[in-house]
Amino acid sequence: MKEIFENSLFFGVGISVGTYLLGIYLKKKLKIFIFNPLLVAITVTIATLLVLDIEYKSYENGAKYLSYLLTPATVALAIPLYEQFMELKKNFTAIMVGIASGVVTTLLTIFVMALLFKLTHTEYVTLLPKSITTAIGIGLSEELNGYVAITVTAIIITGLFGNIAGDYMCRMFGIKHPIAKGVAIGTASHVMGTARAMEIGKTEGAMSSLSVAVAGAMTVGGAIIFENFI
């Protein structure tokens, strides 16, 4: 039984999509925010691998074809962005200032909390790229001589949190304007947050994709200054 799964090319994708569907079903039925489809898929998949004692490598052997689509799908985010171009032009200053304030806040919070947790320089620079999209984050972490694997982990935890709780956070802080929501979610939690913003609405999704690109670029600039602080 175990061998069938380990040698199958379709096990990885099958279990990922299947558990994701389970997550969508649970969310619809129970309407509790912790039943986020992505979170359900991740925990149930991990649990299944552990129970059946299947190595991550055998799972990834098939599942990598899902990640393969990540680049084309991110490219496609230009479509809603184009459709919302008028909104973007009309509110250009607000959007840019909003993203910049978010980037500075990210770097400042990490700096303050790194002091609180007495992190070393390497641990500190490892976390600086945590709010930006994985590919830029990896490059930046390498550039700063951080632990790249941990940077990726922090990026995923951040993205997952933005995906699960992003719109609840917006509601909590009284952020109702679709553009503001999109900027907030995209700046805070990159493409994983954007995936959720896309489900909230077209404007939210488009502004979130824009924020991912702009915040990524700004973070690269900002981190080079912030790296000197610890």
């Binding site: 607000a94 922090a154 917006c170 304007h177």
Partner: peptide
């Protein structure tokens, strides 16, 4: 750090964007 910074960033950048609009 991941949780705290995500929450503060959503609050700050969302609030500022909304305020200017």
């Amino acid at each position: 750090i991941s949780l705290v910074s995500t929450v503060t960033v959503i609050a700050v950048s969302g609030f500022i964007t909304q305020f200017i609009i």
